[in-house]
Computed example of a mutant assay.
Amino acid sequence: MLDNMLDNYDKRTVGDLWRQLFNLDHLTQPTPFTSRFSNYLIVTISILIIILDALLVFLEDYIFVANIGALIGVIVTLLLTIVVMFCLSLQPKIPESQNFEVPWIPTVPFLSVFVNVYLMFKLTSQTWIRFGVWMAIGLSIYIFYGIRNSNERKKSLIKSLDSRLSVSSGSGVSNGYTNNNNNNVVTTVVPT
Rank of each mutant, 00 (worst) to 15 (best):
Y62W: 08
P106D: 00
T124A: 10
P95C: 04
L119F: 08
S89I: 06
A136G: 13
N149L: 04
Y142H: 12
L71I: 13
T107M: 09
I141Y: 13
L88H: 10
A66N: 11
E60K: 15
M85F: 02
L90F: 06
V102P: 14
E101W: 14
L111R: 01
L90S: 07
N149H: 15
G146K: 05
I141C: 13
V65G: 06
W128F: 13
F58R: 15
L123N: 11
V84S: 01
P95D: 05
V83S: 02
N116I: 12
L123K: 05
P103D: 01
L79C: 05
E60H: 15
R148I: 08
V108G: 05
S125L: 11
A66M: 09
T77S: 03
L119H: 07
V83I: 07
T81V: 00
N149P: 03
V74I: 15
Q91S: 08
C87Q: 03
G69H: 14
S125K: 15
I141N: 01
L123M: 10
F100Q: 04
S125N: 14
K93R: 14
S97R: 13
T81E: 02
K154P: 06
S112R: 11
W128M: 09
F131Q: 09
I72H: 06
Q98F: 11
F64R: 15
N151F: 14
I129A: 14
S125Y: 07
K122Q: 11
L90Y: 11
Q91N: 06
T81Y: 01
T127H: 14
G69S: 11
L79W: 13
A136K: 05
E96W: 07
V115I: 12
S150I: 00
W128V: 08
L123F: 05
I63V: 11
K159F: 07
I129P: 10
I158G: 01
P92A: 02
K154I: 07
L78C: 03
M120K: 09
I105S: 09
L71A: 09
L71M: 12
W134T: 06
R148L: 05
F86R: 14
W128G: 09
V84R: 00
V133A: 15
E101Y: 10
T81R: 01
S97Y: 07
G138F: 14
K154N: 06
R153P: 00
V84N: 01
W134E: 05
A66C: 12
L88D: 03
M120P: 00
E152G: 04
N151K: 15
T81K: 01
I158Y: 03
F110W: 04
E101M: 14
A66G: 07
L119G: 03
L79V: 14
F110Q: 04
C87H: 01
D61T: 15
K122N: 06
Y142P: 02
L79E: 09
E152S: 13
T81G: 02
I143W: 13
F144I: 03
N149G: 01
K122A: 13
V84T: 01
L71P: 00
P103K: 02
F114Y: 12
Y62K: 14
V74S: 06
V84M: 05
T77W: 00
L123P: 03
T81M: 00
S97I: 07
K93C: 06
I141K: 00
L78H: 05
F58K: 15
L111N: 04
V108F: 11
N99F: 11
